[in-house]
Design a protein around this nucleic acid. Structure first.
Length: 592
DNA sequence: GCCGTTTTCGGCCCGACTGTTTTCAGTCG
């Protein structure tokens, strides 16, 4: 009996064991051994079941006798006694506490051993009573930082990354779509607008049997708790703590309700004002010939879709992503909104990792999966040597990788496969603005991304200077995730982004729109400015595994909020034009 | 817990930063 668990599930449990061991105060190298083993499993190029069946686990570097046994148990039985016991021996609150900045295994262990703190609530209380500050190794400042971290974590608890919201919403949306009593169906709210961070998930449907639909919705397996349920609206709490509202409207109300519940609030205010200016009234039930708030059907101006609503208010259609009152009305009054970039326009990703650094796919696996997805090229931009924790590449290793890529491309060409790997690097921008690898090696690469990964503490002036120095390097094609933010976790580092954009414009450097769900960086709010300066956008998945293609689907949605069109995005270029475009900066600097 | 031997135990990956100290521990990437 085999195949209870796949690679990523096994790796996840090994990683969790590592965390639990640390919390127990075990030898840190023991914990590290589990992390290494997890990585070895993820990097495996053949099926895990096969290796287990043939008893070859301990031949893998990083996996010894003990861990091999545990993996075998997991794969053959789907369970691991050692893991269950370990988990049972540690209060679950301790693991939660790891989420709070400045709290790691050591401090959490001290808090637990000395003060019996095993939950965030107890920790907050102890901080407020000043009992944490007097512990050895703790102090007033740390206590204040912990308290602040708790409050921050709480404020963000009701917010969710776009990818999380979609992964919860999509199966429910499909269920609703297929339901016999439901005729029309859509998500609304910030999810439909592709905001990078989502509050709750709004569903809107039309039905003649609202009661049955309500009950069906509340009975979905993902629903943890029903908060409210009436005739037209239900509110539930979904697994993972995301709140979701379902609204049911009549068929003829659907376009108005969709527009209304899609928002944004700011966008809706302008829409309603435009209605008033035309002696009309707009609300979620319709557009009415009336000076007063009303739902009187005899006053309704029928609209079959959102486009007609916009037209009635003297506007061209505005796609949901642009409904933020960020200049969309000024344009839509005069001309059609430009055709924004779509997922189907993207021919490849320019920022990706492989097993050569911290990615989970080998180069041949990347070729196979990304070609199958219909992409034409894929840049391999692993980390550079300073990114030690990510297994960054030094010059000799990078040269080996280049040789392998060359071989792979040769093979693809011989087989007549319309796909190629581009060589590249995500090179670290060091503290002084210099790069982590010498120009000579950068010159050999197709794509050079420069990114900041460390040293966030400097002030705005210092960081701005540092980044500008990096983009002035003739070999740097792309500035990677320019503000370094991690959504819901870490604010952007202080940087004068307008000055950076100017420097990119002057040097012919592209700016990345990084699609990692917690980055979405450069923020869509800055792209109209970048566009106005003529700066091109390189969309990067920052892919570490095959599943990350979903990031591109969502990332393009968020990039649309920045008014990006196919001509602004270099990944929309076919390969010959892209390769030519990549050489432009070098020509400008007279280095190629 | 793994690895690699100078074969049976000592080293394992590094640097910045912060806040705690009075020379360093813990966290984070």
């Amino acid at each position: 009996m085999f195949g209870f668990m796949d690679k990523s599930q096994v790796a996840a449990i090994l990683n969790e064991i590592a965390v639990l061991l640390e919390l127990k105060g075990e030898n840190p190298f023991k914990s590290r051994a589990y992390i290494n083993a997890a990585r070895a499993i993820e990097g495996l190029t053949e099926p895990l079941e096969k290796v287990v069946a043939e008893n070859r686990l301990d031949q893998i570097k990083g996996i010894g006798e003990s861990i091999a046994q545990k993996i075998t148990e997991l794969v053959t039985t789907g369970k691991l006694a050692y893991y269950e016991e370990l988990k049972a021996s540690i209060p679950p609150g301790l693991i939660e506490m790891l989420e709070i900045p400045n709290l790691g295994p050591k401090r959490i262990k001290t808090l637990y051993d000395k003060l019996r703190i095993d939950s965030i609530e107890k920790l907050e209380k102890a901080c407020k009573e000043g009992r944490v500050a007097i512990l050895p190794g703790f102090g007033e400042k740390l206590q204040a930082n912990i308290l602040e971290g708790i409050q921050r974590a709480r404020a963000l608890a009701s917010k969710h990354l776009l990818v999380e919201a979609w992964s919860v919403a999509e199966p429910i949306l499909n269920e609703l779509r297929n339901h016999p009593y439901i005729t029309k169906c859509s998500v609304a709210g910030s999810l439909r607008r592709n905001k990078e961070v989502i509050g709750d998930i709004d569903f809107l449907v039309t039905s003649n049997k609202p009661k049955e639909v309500m009950e069906y919705f509340a009975g979905q397996p993902q629903v943890e708790k029903v908060l409210a349920m009436g005739e037209t609206k239900a509110s539930v709490l979904l697994q993972g703590g995301i709140q979701s509202d379902l609204r049911i409207v009549a068929e003829h109300e659907f376009p108005f309700a969709l527009a209304y519940f899609t928002g944004s609030k700011e966008h809706n205010i302008v829409m309603r004002q435009r209605a008033i200016a035309r002696s009309l009234r707009l609300n979620e039930y319709g557009l009415f010939r009336s000076k007063e708030e009303t739902r009187d059907p005899s006053l309704l101006i029928p609209c079959k879709d959102e486009t007609e609503i916009y037209e009635r208010l003297g506007l061209h259609y505005i796609p949901p992503e642009l409904r933020e009152d960020h200049g969309e009305f000024e344009v839509a009054e005069k001309q059609p909104i430009p055709e924004l970039v779509k997922y189907e326009d993207i021919k490849g990703s320019l920022h990706n990792h492989s097993t050569w650094s911290d990615g989970h796919q080998t180069l041949p696996e990347i070729v196979e999966t990304m070609h199958a997805h219909g992409f034409k090229y894929w840049a391999i931009t692993d980390h550079s040597k300073s990114a030690f924790q990510a297994g960054g590449l030094d010059v000799p290793t990078l040269k080996k990788q280049l040789a392998e890529i060359k071989k792979i491309n040769q093979r693809l060409k011989e087989q007549g496969i319309d796909f190629m790997l581009l060589t590249g690097i995500e090179v670290d921008i060091l503290k002084d603005g210099s790069l982590d690898l010498p120009d000579e090696i950068l010159a050999e690469l197709d794509v050079v991304i420069a990114s900041v990964h460390s040293g966030f503490a400097g002030g705005e002036a210092e960081m701005t200077k540092r980044i500008i120095k990096a983009v002035q390097n003739p070999w740097v094609n792309i500035l990677g995730h320019p503000t370094g933010r991690l959504l819901l976790k870490r604010d952007p580092y202080p940087v004068n982004i307008h000055a950076v954009i100017d420097a990119c414009a002057e040097t012919g450097t592209w700016i990345e729109f990084n699609c990692a769900p917690d980055r979405m960086d450069l923020d869509w709010r800055y792209w109209p400015f970048a566009k106005s300066k003529g700066v091109k956008c390189a969309i990067g998945i920052d892919a570490h595994s095959a599943n990350d293609v979903i990031f591109l689907k969502l990332g393009v949605g968020t990039a649309r909020k920045g008014w990006l069109t196919p001509s602004d995005v270099v990944n929309c270029l076919p390969i010959p034009q892209l390769l030519e475009a990549l050489k432009q900066k070098r020509k400008r600097f007279n280095v190629a």
